[in-house]
């Protein structure tokens, strides 16, 4: 026991195995990250199962919330991609819900005294997870882009109505911009979650350190305490906003794939 000793700001991101699992030589252990993916996904499933169990003409509370979420994402997809976006709607909706719940659940406080492996965890605070989601989006863009437009997909890199001597430069810029999309998409979400949790931990750490110092110094723990409260509120906003941003950018990129030849 070390009394008032705060954990380091990076400890919260450590991956801890709960059940060791191996698929051949690949380690697919159930970790704290996997646990919170399962909890988040499970919560979404339970919610939507309850909300759609009796699809009523006059919706109840749960059904209303589900319909609001549905209309929100459906409007986003329709406004950004147009009528052809219909087939991408389930993907964008799943993406939005999965990221939103992953971001939000990570902000809940852990039960005091439970093992470290069971502490709340934000799967989207790991670059590999957000990168995988970003690569999935870009893969869909590339595969659907070529399927829909054939080689016309390359028109994406050559905006029309430009003088010919500018073309090489512009094509280069467009290619670089296209290649940086998955990285910016992945890093934006990861960095927001990562930084938010680090700042929260630092504020909380100051509170614990100053309380541990004892005496009149304990009074100075009040300022970082309110700081932590304010940052927590901010992080809830960021959690929802980043899920929305990821969904919006996914829609914009999918729009490129659908309408590449129209450029």
């Amino acid at each position: 026991m070390y009394g008032f000793r705060a954990a380091g700001p990076m400890e919260q991101f450590e991956i801890l195995p709960i059940v060791d699992l191996h698929l051949g030589s690949i380690n697919i252990s159930l970790t704290n990250s996997a646990l919170w993916m399962l909890i988040g996904t499970g919560a979404i499933i339970v919610f939507f199962f309850a909300a759609t169990r009796r699809a009523a003409l006059i919706p109840g509370r749960l059904q209303s919330v589900a319909e609001v979420l549905y209309e929100f994402v459906a409007d986003l997809v329709r406004d950004t991609i147009g009528p052809e976006g219909r087939k991408f709607f389930p993907y964008v909706f799943t993406l939005f819900m999965w990221i939103l719940v992953s971001n939000l659940f990570g902000l809940f406080p852990s039960f005091p005294g439970i093992p470290h492996a069971l502490h709340t965890f934000t799967p989207t605070s790991h670059l590999i997870v957000t990168l995988a989601l970003a690569m999935l989006t870009i893969s869909i863009v590339i595969v659907y882009g070529f399927y829909k437009n054939g080689l016309g997909f390359f028109k994406l890199f050559a905006p029309s109505g430009l003088p010919l001597w500018l073309m090489p430069l512009l094509v280069l810029i467009e290619v670089i911009s296209f290649l940086s999309r998955p990285l910016s998409l992945a890093i934006r979400l990861f960095a927001n979650m990562f930084a938010g949790h680090v700042i929260l931990k630092l504020f909380a750490g100051f509170v614990v350190s100053l309380l541990g110092a004892g005496g009149a110094v304990m009074l100075f723990g009040i300022a970082p305490f309110f700081g932590a409260v304010a940052v927590t509120a901010l992080e809830f906003l960021v959690a929802a906003l980043q899920a929305y941003v990821f969904a919006v950018l996914t829609c914009i990129y999918l729009n490129d794939a659908v309408h590449a030849a129209d450029h």
Binding site: I15, N27, S33, H126
Partner: peptide, 23 residues
Amino acid sequence: PQLDPAWWPSQLFWLVITFGFLY
């Protein structure tokens, strides 16, 4: 912890399972 490749396969595996099932 994010840059430790040892845990990448596990995270990707469970991401595919949960995201795929949810989809």
